[in-house]
Every structure is written in structure tokens, then in C-alpha cells.
Design a protein around this nucleic acid. Structure first.
Length: 518
DNA sequence: GGATTGAGTCT
DNA sequence: GGAGACTCAATCC
């Protein structure tokens, strides 16, 4: 850490805070500014920092940039800190300190001080380390891909314009809608605020009405991947490190998940073939290293089994059954051996849908079945997994009376809309109530695992590093001769992060890029 | 130039 | 009319 500098690497404020926190005088103030305050304020969503500072301190918040002078040329940390000290009065530091105390006491009042001190605050240096480490990208590979896709797009554009009978901007939904629905006379469907929808759902349904539609779907997919990933990622490589440094945002998602930005490395494609080829660009940064990926298997369903205490669901996990097949057997009333692919596919949608508070209408849409059938399936599900229904009912009613829901570790989400008179708004809050404790507990668990893994790596003096978190997955760059130890260490800490009534399974893969590691 | 909208990517 | 995110391009102001 002695060479730490305030610069674009680890530009996320958490990293800068970590660096500055070496100087005692700033510790509380900076920690307050970047973490505790925003964490707490995001957690209840009722205030913003400026308003709070104004209300309690008659003082305007000093931004981090103002405090540190980031954005100036790179200076050694000591110099930056000393400069900041001379630029700002002791009074400012005192004020931030007093706000820290205020917010800390509120955390305590809401029962979240332990969550803060045992989990969130300890995660700060872990995330800072990951941001600073960055991940290597195979630029040559992406450049080649970019050229190939450009050719493909060019010919698609020519075809589309020819079929449309005129040249227009395919990226403009307005112009595309005009071509599709006015000029070509295709049947209109969903409307948006500004016109007719041309999204993938609409296009899929028009596929057999006009050959232009398939071309459009292809064009959309390729141009998205090209602009967002293939062309964007190489631009984001840090000149000094030669790697891409994301920011992991700790106080954005209402459920307690992390988010990732600049660039977002939590939504790198994987579903389609061309998407998967983008993952191959994520590689080890040096010879002798490999990429390792470790992901929780069905963590949210396991958390739901634990929280609800449903015996049938828990039993399925204890017996290491394929959960979607088991659900299919129970819902469709057949033996597990007789579950067809289609039944399993439907059961999978049901399993996820339940956690998101889906209704008959939603399920019927997703499965393309009648609402009556969907209603039957849902009823059968709750008959076979009765405690799940119980959990949903209990959670909503406790949200109504308390105004919030919480995870196993006490993380709260306030739901001010839970008693709204508007049915749409209220039901939306009810779905959030159902989902947050599940999604949030899973987030708590992987965060805990990350803290433990980070500690274990440094204790064991390993050269392998944790680079990314993607909600239920951790990505590492591992030294080849540490593979065995890393597999064991990571599996152990992920499995043991929290003791649930169901076992936790962790799948680990190693390869020479992120795709191969899956 | 910033904010909004529609679209698409992930878990 | 299932939960949670972020980014890009077009468009609006």
C-alpha cells in the first residue's frame, strides 16, 4: 500500500477511502462519507446526505473530491492528504465526525450495526483490492472480433435497407417503427410512451410475417454486443496496469447486492454463441496463471427453502435432487423419471417465478399457456410446498405492519408503497417484499464468503487473487500450482459462509479464460 | 450538454 | 402484469 496513489485505478471512492484511512485524522470522516452514510441512506431510502447534513448540522456536505483534490495530477498519498489538511479546516473534519456518530447510532437503532461492522465495513478493503487488481483482457482477440462483426453488420444493414425499400437508421426505434408498421404494414402490438414497441418480444412474434424481422433480430444482437462490449472494453484498459478496473458499488442495490459499473463486469454475455465468445476475452494477465470461477448452485432457492422452512423443498436439496425436475414431478403429478424436458422447463420458470412473486397472468405469458392452466400450476405448487406460501403471506403481512422486510443478517429494505391504495403500486411492493429477503440473504452470504476468502488468501500467502463477483459467482486469477489449494479454500469458505438447513453446493471450474472456467 | 426513453445484457 | 442491476444510441430540452 505504500505506493498507493489517488488515480484512476481504484477510482472508486472506496479505494480512495481505504488509502486515505491510513491517516487517522481522516479515517472517520472519509469512512462516514463514502460508506456508512450512503449505506444507511440507501438502506432506508428516505433521505439524502445533503438534506441530512443540512437538517442536523446546518452544513453543506463536503464532497470527496473537494476533500482530496482528486482529478489533479497524481501525487503520492501523503502529499495529497497533507494538502487536504491544509485546505480544509478542522471544523470540517469535526462535522463529518459528528455526522458519523449520528448515522452510527441510527444504524444501531435499526439493528444493523452488526451488519455494518461485521460485514459491510469489512468488505470495503476486499472490494477495494479487487478493483485495484483489475482483470486482463485479450485486446487482439476483441479487435479481430470487432472487424468480423463490423462486416456482418454491414451486410445486415444493406439487406435491411433493401427489404425496407429505403435507407433509415435501424438504431432509431422511431424510424424502425415507421418502416415496420406504416410502410410494411405489419400488425402493431405493444405501445410505448412514444410509439409502437419494436422490442425483441414484438419482433419474435412477427418473425414469419416478413423476412426483414430475422435480419433485425440479428442486427440488434450484434450491434449491442459490439458497442457495449467488444469495442468498449479495450478502451477501458488502464494504461499503467494494462487491465480493466471496474467499480463495485456497495450502496446501490436495494436488496444488498453489489453492482458493478465503469465498466459493468456483472453483465458480460454468456447466453448466445457470440456472447460466449466475448467471455473468452477475459484471461489471466501473466504466464503461469489461470482463471477460476466458483459459483453457488441454486443459492436463492436454497435460501428460500431455509427461510420458509419448507420440508419438501429442503428434502429435495438434502437428497441432491435436480430441483427443477423434482418441482416438475410434484407439480405435474408424475414420477421424477417421467419428467419430460418441457415439464422441467416449465417447472424452472415456476421456481424462479415464485421467488419473484409471479401471478397467473405473468406465468401464463412466460410459459405461453392459458391463465387457467397457470393458475392450476401455481395452486399445485403451493399445495406441494405449503411453507413457501406461508413465507410469502407472512412476509407481506410483516412488511405491512413494520414497513420493511429484512434478511437473515438483519439487512432492511423499507417499502413505503406496501400499503398504497393503488393496486399496481401495492402489488409491486409486495413482490419486492417477497424477493428481497431471499436475494438479500444470498448477497449477505457471498459477501461473508468474500471477506473470509480474502483473509485466507493473504494469511496463506497465496499469489492467487479474487477479481470479480457476479452475485452468485466469484472469479479468480489463480497461480497454476495453487489450483488444488484454491479449489479447496474457496469451496470451504463459500459453503460455510452461513449455516443453513439445506446444504450449499459450489461448482468450480478452471480454464485459460472466463468461459472455459465455467 | 444533461436527462429521458427504448432497447438489451447479466444474475 | 416476476426481483435486482448497467450501458448504449437516439431523442428531447
Amino acid at each position: 500500500m505504500e505506493n498507493a496513489r489517488i488515480e484512476k485505478i481504484g477510482h472508486n471512492i472506496k479505494y480512495d477511502a481505504l488509502v486515505l484511512s491510513q491517516f487517522d485524522v481522516w479515517t472517520e470522516g472519509v469512512t462516514f462519507d463514502t460508506m456508512i452514510a450512503s449505506y444507511l441512506l440507501r438502506a432506508d431510502g428516505r433521505h439524502n446526505l445533503d438534506a441530512l447534513a443540512k437538517e442536523h448540522l446546518q452544513f453543506k456536505k463536503v464532497s470527496f473530491d473537494e476533500l482530496t483534490g482528486t482529478g489533479k495530477e497524481h501525487k503520492p498519498i501523503r502529499e495529497v492528504a497533507l494538502q487536504a489538511l491544509s485546505d480544509y479546516s478542522c471544523e470540517d473534519a469535526d462535522i463529518t465526525f459528528r455526522l458519523f456518530e449520528l448515522l452510527k447510532s441510527r444504524l444501531a437503532k435499526e439493528g444493523m450495526l452488526n451488519l455494518g461492522e461485521d460485514l459491510e465495513f469489512r468488505l470495503i478493503p476486499v472490494l477495494a483490492g479487487m478493483e485495484k487488481e483489475g482483470i486482463a483482457i485479450d485486446v487482439e482477440y476483441l479487435k479481430t472480433m470487432s472487424v468480423d462483426i463490423a462486416k456482418l453488420l454491414k451486410s445486415l444493414i444493406t439487406d435491411i435497407h433493401a427489404m425496407a425499400g429505403s435507407e433509415f437508421n435501424i438504431n432509431s426505434t422511431q424510424q424502425l417503427g415507421d418502416i415496420l408498421f406504416n410502410k410494411l404494414g405489419l400488425p402493431t402490438q405493444k405501445k410505448t410512451k412514444t410509439g409502437f414497441s419494436t422490442d425483441v418480444g414484438v419482433l419474435e412474434s412477427l418473425r414469419h410475417q416478413h423476412p426483414i424481422v430475422d435480419k433485425l433480430l440479428e442486427y440488434r444482437q450484434f450491434s449491442k454486443l459490439k458497442s457495449t462490449y467488444i469495442d468498449a472494453l479495450p478502451e477501458l484498459i488502464n494504461k499503467r496496469t494494462g487491465r480493466v478496473h471496474t467499480s463495485f458499488n456497495q450502496t446501490v442495490a436495494a436488496t444488498g447486492r453489489l453492482s458493478s459499473s465503469d465498466p459493468n463486469l456483472q453483465n458480460i454475455p454468456i447466453r448466445t454463441e457470440i456472447g460466449r465468445s466475448i467471455r473468452k476475452a477475459f484471461v489471466p494477465g501473466a504466464k503461469g496463471f489461470l482463471i477460476m470461477s466458483a459459483d453457488y448452485s441454486q443459492i436463492e432457492l436454497r435460501v428460500m427453502a431455509h427461510i420458509s422452512g419448507d420440508e419438501a423443498l429442503s428434502e429435495a436439496f438434502r437428497n441432491k435432487e435436480d430441483i427443477h425436475t423434482t418441482t416438475a414431478a410434484k407439480v405435474f403429478g408424475v414420477e421424477p423419471g417421467d419428467v419430460t424436458k418441457d415439464m422441467r422447463r416449465k417447472a424452472k420458470e415456476v421456481n424462479f417465478g415464485i421467488m419473484y412473486g409471479i401471478g397467473p397472468f405473468g406465468l401464463s405469458n412466460r410459459l405461453e399457456i392459458s391463465q387457467g392452466e397457470a393458475k392450476e400450476i401455481i395452486a399445485k405448487y403451493f399445495e406441494r410446498f405449503p411453507k413457501v406460501r406461508q413465507y410469502i403471506n407472512d412476509t407481506i403481512s410483516s412488511a405491512r405492519s413494520n414497513g420493511y422486510v429484512s434478511t437473515l443478517l438483519g439487512r432492511r429494505r423499507y417499502l413505503s408503497d406496501i400499503n398504497d391504495r393503488n393496486q399496481n403500486i401495492r402489488q409491486n411492493a409486495e413482490r419486492q417484499a417477497i424477493n428481497m429477503p431471499i436475494q438479500g440473504t444470498a448477497a449477505d452470504m457471498i459477501k461473508l464468503a468474500m471477506i473470509h476468502i480474502h483473509g485466507a488468501l493473504s494469511k496463506a500467502g497465496l499469489e492467487s487473487r479474487m477479481l470479480l463477483q457476479v452475485h452468485d459467482e466469484l472469479v479468480f486469477e489463480i497461480k497454476k500450482n495453487e489450483e488444488k489449494e484454491m479449489r479447496a479454500l474457496v469451496t470451504k469458505h463459500m459453503q460455510q459462509s452461513m449455516k443453513l438447513d439445506v446444504p450449499l453446493e459450489v461448482d468450480i471450474g478452471v480454464g485459460k479464460n472466463w468461459l472455459e472456467a465455467h
